[in-house]
């Protein structure tokens, strides 16, 4: 294996992403956990960039780290959560509680290991840069249906949010 600067940077970013992700689930303090999630997302964006997908990297930071997680932090600030409120967490740690998540995680792990071992995929990850124009052509060409379905979903989510947020108690009109 050759360790060119790019490859070293990739593994460094990947390592940061893994460590930060572990910290996300082990922190007691909710805001600290979210901050580690932000770091993890930025590290993943760096990985995307190094793998030749600058557009995906940019959107990862703008949409996930810059918008969605800000809203998470906002909500946690709003509710004044500091320490994780453990007294409300389910108290029994039986096998039944662990079974579901562990099975799903194992399936994912198996998939990941298979993908890493699969030779064809490794060759595809060469240094071809996919620019924003190609992403756009793909989104509005072969994947048009997926884009439209996603937009339906978002629109319905927006309407539902509007419905729930509507003030009906103080003489707000139906």
């Amino acid at each position: 294996m050759n360790f060119s600067p790019i490859v070293t940077m990739f593994y460094l970013a990947a390592l940061i992403a893994i460590v930060a992700s572990i910290k996300v689930v082990t922190r007691k303090n909710t805001v600290h956990a979210l901050l580690y999630l932000v770091i993890s997302l930025i590290a993943v964006a760096v990985c995307f960039y190094l793998m030749g997908a600058p557009f995906a990297a940019g959107l990862e930071v703008i949409v996930y780290a810059g918008a969605i997680l800000v809203l998470f932090v906002f909500a946690i600030m709003l509710f004044g959560l500091r320490e994780d409120e453990t007294q409300y967490a389910p108290s029994h740690h039986g096998i039944s509680m662990w079974f579901g998540p562990v099975t799903l995680a194992l399936v994912l792990l198996a998939q990941l290991l298979y993908t890493i071992n699969h030779q064809g995929i490794q060759q595809q990850l060469s240094a071809t840069v996919i620019d924003s124009k190609q992403v756009g052509i793909l989104l509005y060409g072969p994947y048009l249906l997926a884009v439209e379905i996603a937009s339906f979903l978002l629109l319905s989510g927006l309407i539902a949010a509007y419905h729930f947020a509507k003030d009906v108690t103080h003489g707000g009109q139906q």
Partner: peptide, 12 residues
């Protein structure tokens, strides 16, 4: 996009 990304991270 880099500019927009940095602008959105500055909120933190």
């Amino acid at each position: 996009l880099f500019f927009l990304a940095m602008a959105s991270l500055a909120v933190y």
